[in-house]
């Protein structure tokens, strides 16, 4: 078995240990900015051991990247963040869908050309920016289960992440030497 796949599966299992899950979900910033990316990473690693499936259904990675951005969008709804804390089915769905998004990214990113990648990033990065800004500016708490201070930190984190992502993207765009802009993800 591919070592990356093993690492991905291990990471996914580790994130599911109740103790670790509790810590990560006790704080809104850990939940969104640490647990989410780690599940994505686990899915991404997991997929590395397998060849891209059904390439015909995923021409230029369009379907996969679309699915990944949909999943990311869904998990930015504040109510969803609140609900997974009390609803186990939804919590399971969160792990599955985010891992799937990671896998879709791993399989689709190499297939995607400049335009499809640009479309994906042009969708996800501004979305993170808007949500981050919303979390910072909202006069009330958007998640009943999290403190307003945590919301502020999460918003700042999302904003920072989206800006960093945009800068990386720009960098990759103007540095074509490193193999067609693969640098962001690899």
């Amino acid at each position: 078995m591919n070592p990356q796949t093993v690492a991905g599966a291990g990471l996914l299992l580790m994130l599911n240990i109740p103790f670790i899950r509790r810590i990560m979900e006790s704080d809104m910033a850990y939940h969104m900015l640490l647990q989410f990316p780690l599940i994505l990473l686990a899915g991404w690693l997991l997929a590395r051991g397998f060849p891209e499936p059904a390439k015909k259904w995923n021409y230029a990675g369009v379907t996969g990247l679309l699915a990944a951005s949909m999943i990311l969008m869904f998990w930015m709804i504040p109510r969803a963040l609140d609900l997974v804390l009390i609803n186990n089915t939804l919590e399971l769905l969160k792990f599955l869908s985010l891992a799937l998004a990671g896998m879709a990214l791993a399989w689709s990113w190499p297939l995607a050309g400049m335009i499809v990648r640009g479309f994906f990033l042009g969708n996800v990065l501004p979305m993170m920016m808007v949500v981050g800004w919303l979390y910072i500016e909202a006069p009330v708490r958007l998640c009943n289960s999290y403190l307003s201070y945590d919301q502020l930190r999460t918003g700042s984190g999302l904003l920072a992440l989206s800006i960093a992502g945009s800068l990386l993207w720009l960098y990759a765009f103007f540095m074509p030497s490193n193999q067609a802009g693969n640098s962001e993800i690899r």
């Binding site: 969008m73 709804i77 504040p78 109510r79 969803a80 609140d82 009330v140 998640c143």
Partner: peptide, 25 residues
């Protein structure tokens, strides 16, 4: 892609009670 978008819209719609709300409050 169409199926993926439909699934996404359905998921967001059910989470937001038909696009009426975004927060648990």
């Amino acid at each position: 892609s169409v199926i993926v978008v439909l699934l996404g819209v359905w998921a967001v719609a059910s989470m937001s009670e038909g696009f009426e709300l975004l927060t648990s409050e």
